[in-house]
Design a protein around this nucleic acid. Structure first.
Lengths: 194, 194
DNA sequence: TGTATTTCTTGATCTAGTTCAATTTTTTAT
DNA sequence: ATAAAAAATTGAACTAGATCAAGAAATACA
C-alpha cells in the first residue's frame, strides 16, 4: 500500500531520494475503512492527516438544520484533512465518511512535525500539495460566482467522471450547493437532450 | 517598506533569524501602484509574487459577458498571485487592480526559486501561508453551499470591515456572486432594520 | 468648476432554483 | 428473499435573487 504514496511523492517532488521517502513512509500506518464508516466526526479534533490509497471518501459539514454541505470527495491519491482543525487543534467542522470500502495511510501530528524537522523536502512536498489545492479551490470559487447551477453540474460530471459514478445525486447536490430535487431535474433534462 | 514584510515573516515563522530574512528581503523590489492601475491583466503570464505593504488591491476575473467576478481583495499583509499562472507559467485568468494608491513588494520567479534553495525556511513560510489561504477558501466554499446571499453579505461586512469601507458595492457584489442591485436592496434593508 | 462617467437606487417583471408532499426505485440489512 | 430505510423522481406552488430600465447621486477628470 505504501508504494502508492511513494509513487505519489516522487511525482510531486522528484528530488526526493529513496532513503528519505522510506524514512517518511515509516511514520504512516495503514487503515482499512468500511463503507459508511466515519474516520472523523464534526466536533472532534483532527488527529491524523490521511492519504487515500484506494476507495472514496466524503468530506462534508452538517449545518444546524441537518443539511449536509460537501467540501470535496477524495479518491486514490488525494489527501484528507481539515487543516484548520489539524493545525490549530480545534474541533473540526467536518465529517469524513467512506463512500466505499477504502484503504488510507495516516500520520499523526507529532510524527508529521518530526518528519518536517528530519526531512526538509517534506516541507516542499506539502507546500506544493497546498498550492495545488489552492488552485482547485480558486477555480471553484470563480465558478460559484460566474456559472449557473446547471453549468456547474455539467462541469462537475465531466471533470470528476470517476467520482461522479461512485456517489449519490444527493451527495452531488451537497457539493454543488443545490437541492437533490434540482439535480434530479437536471439529470432528466440531460438524458432527454442526449 | 521592507520592515512590513519582515514583521510579517517573523509572525509566521518565528524561527527565521535576522540574517536569513534579510537575505530573502533582498530579492524583493518596491513598487508603487496608483489607484486604478493594473499590476496584472488577464491573459498575461504572472511574473511576480506580490506582498502588499499598504493600500488595497482587487483580484478578479472578467467573463466573456464582461461581468467581473472577484477572487478576493487584498490589503496590508496579504499576498497576491494567481498561483496557477505563476507556477505553471500559463496565462492568468485574473486581473489585479489597485483600488487605492498602494505599495507592494514584488519577487520574480527565478529569485523566488533561488530563495527556496538558499533559505530552507522559505519553504516553510510559503507552506504555512498556503495552509492559511486554504482554510479561508474552504470556509468560503462551505458558505456558498450553506448560506443565503444575504447572510454571506452580512458575514462579509462583519469579517472584512476595513476592506468593505474601501470598495464599491459593485465590487462586493462581484465577490459574493450577486448583482449590484441586490446589494443595494440588502443595504437598504439593513439600514431600515438598524 | 463643470461635465462626463461610473455607481447607486428603485420599481416592475421574470426565472432559476427551492420547498413540500406523494410515489417509485434502489439499497441495506436481516 | 424480504422488510425497512434511504434515495430518486415528479408535480405544483413559491421565493430569493436576476434582469431591465430609468433617474439620482457620487466620482473622476480636464
Amino acid at each position: 500500500m505504501k508504494e502508492h504514496l511513494k509513487t505519489y511523492i516522487q511525482g510531486i517532488v522528484p528530488e526526493f531520494v529513496d532513503q528519505e521517502i522510506n524514512l517518511f513512509l515509516k511514520y504512516f500506518k495503514l487503515k482499512k475503512v468500511k463503507k459508511k464508516e466515519f474516520i472523523l466526526k464534526q466536533g472532534e479534533c483532527v488527529k491524523y492527516e490521511t492519504f487515500i490509497c484506494e476507495g472514496c471518501l466524503h468530506v462534508f459539514h452538517a449545518d444546524c438544520n441537518g443539511n449536509e454541505h460537501t467540501l470535496y470527495f477524495g479518491i486514490k491519491d488525494w489527501w484528507l484533512a481539515d487543516i484548520d482543525s489539524f493545525i490549530n487543534e480545534r474541533p473540526s467542522q467536518f465529517n469524513i465518511q467512506a463512500i466505499q470500502d477504502s484503504s488510507v495511510l495516516i500520520i499523526n501530528k507529532e510524527d508529521k512535525d518530526k518528519a518536517f524537522r528530519e526531512i526538509p523536502k517534506v516541507e516542499k512536498l506539502f507546500r506544493i500539495m497546498c498550492q495545488k489545492s489552492l488552485i482547485v479551490y480558486q477555480q471553484r470559487i470563480i465558478q460559484y460566482n460566474s456559472m449557473s447551477a446547471e453549468d456547474r453540474y455539467i462541469f462537475f460530471i465531466k471533470k470528476y467522471k470517476d467520482i461522479a459514478q461512485l456517489i449519490s445525486n444527493k451527495a452531488i447536490a451537497s457539493y454543488l450547493g443545490v437541492t437533490p430535487e434540482y439535480i434530479s431535474r437536471l439529470r432528466k433534462k440531460a438524458v432527454n437532450i442526449g
